[in-house]
């Protein structure tokens, strides 16, 4: 059987490949010959970094057309490239742009898709992926039919492994006239970076609707400070406007894997669990004994979060 050709769709931040792309190169190397697809203006360092993490080839579309929410130009170029090169599998990270590009590409190609995978393997010509469903549950999802398969992988499902190596660069022609782009970004308003870097925190104290009101997040900040950790939140309270979106942990927010995760007043909806299930130790404090968060907690306390959290902070401070 010929070596499988696995492509990793890559995004840059400040000129460097994003971490999830490097994680996916590890997955791709395990499945066959890894290549990266980079549709964005990029310098030599970015290409070198992809090579050093195992990409034998970098398909590079060096065109400013791709810089801003360019789903249609991306899909046009990818569709042409896939037709010419016939890869077996494309891996996408779980960013918003990746999701939109993958889904539009899938619609255009009629390709088989799996989202939210935490592991990917082949069994014969079929592709098997592990996909979390809720709480402590996962399912094996099987994809079959003609290649290519398109799979979106959760962050931190694979490690970043620098293996050394150099990528051969193959230019990708731009397939869409800029005038044909129907979606025009008029303005980008950056959000002032608020709050901690959740993705790198070793300890996270996260709050949900059970806190009652926005002001009570202060209690979590005090506990987090005591533990040297960061504060996160569930979607419900971000939607309610208690804390900014940068705090959100879950399927549509950040994926975290801290050493310690303390869930305060969080019920444990599917989307939230998808973003924090990988935490090493989970403590849950919630009034509702039936809350799904208890299913994955190492230690759960059924009780009033507004009483227990300040007492815990006080005890830790007086240690």
């Amino acid at each position: 059987m010929a070596t499988r050709r696995v492509w990793v769709w890559t995004e840059l931040t400040d000129g460097a490949p994003q971490r999830p792309a490097l994680e996916l190169l590890t997955a791709a190397r395990g499945l066959g010959e890894a290549a990266a697809v980079l549709l964005a203006p990029a310098g030599d360092e970015a290409i070198a970094a992809l090579g050093a993490h195992g990409a034998a080839v970098v398909y590079h579309g060096d065109d400013a057309i791709y810089t801003q929410y360019a789903v249609e130009p991306q899909v046009a170029a990818l569709a042409a490239l896939i037709e010419a090169e016939a890869p077996d599998l494309l891996l996408f990270p779980s960013t918003f742009t990746a999701r939109d590009v993958l889904a539009r590409l899938a619609g255009r190609l009629g390709a088989g898709v799996i989202a939210n995978a935490t592991s990917v393997r082949f069994e014969g010509d079929r592709l098997l992926a592990t996909v979390p469903y809720t709480g402590a549950y996962v399912a094996t999802v099987t994809l079959e039919g003609p290649a290519p398969y398109l799979v979106q992988v959760r962050p931190k499902a694979y490690p970043v492994e620098p293996v050394g190596g150099q990528a051969e660069v193959r230019p990708v022609a731009t397939a869409l006239d800029p005038a044909a782009c129907r979606v025009q970004v008029v303005e980008t308003v950056p959000q002032v970076a608020e709050g901690p870097n959740l993705e790198e925190a070793e300890v996270i104290v996260a709050g949900g609707r059970g806190l009652g009101k926005a002001e009570n997040f202060r209690l979590l900040e005090e506990l987090a400070r005591q533990l040297g950790g960061a504060v996160g939140a569930s979607r419900a309270v971000v939607d309610a406007g208690w804390v900014p979106y940068s705090y959100q942990i879950g399927q549509t927010g950040k994926t975290v894997k801290p050493n310690l995760y303390i869930a305060c007043g969080i019920s444990g909806a599917i989307q939230h669990l998808a973003g924090m299930k990988g935490s090493k130790h989970v403590i849950a404090i919630n009034q509702d004994p039936d809350a799904a968060i208890f299913e994955i907690a190492d230690l759960g306390v059924v009780g009033d979060v507004l009483t227990i959290v300040p007492k815990l902070t006080e005890r830790l401070a007086g240690r």
């Binding site: 999701r99 539009r104 898709v113 989202a115 939210n116 129907r182 599917i270």
Partner: peptide, 17 residues
């Protein structure tokens, strides 16, 4: 929770999303 129906539909109907 895949968020894929909108963009996939956009491709099938050839409209922006």
């Amino acid at each position: 929770g895949t968020g894929s129906v909108g963009p996939a539909l956009a491709a099938l109907l050839d409209v922006p999303v």
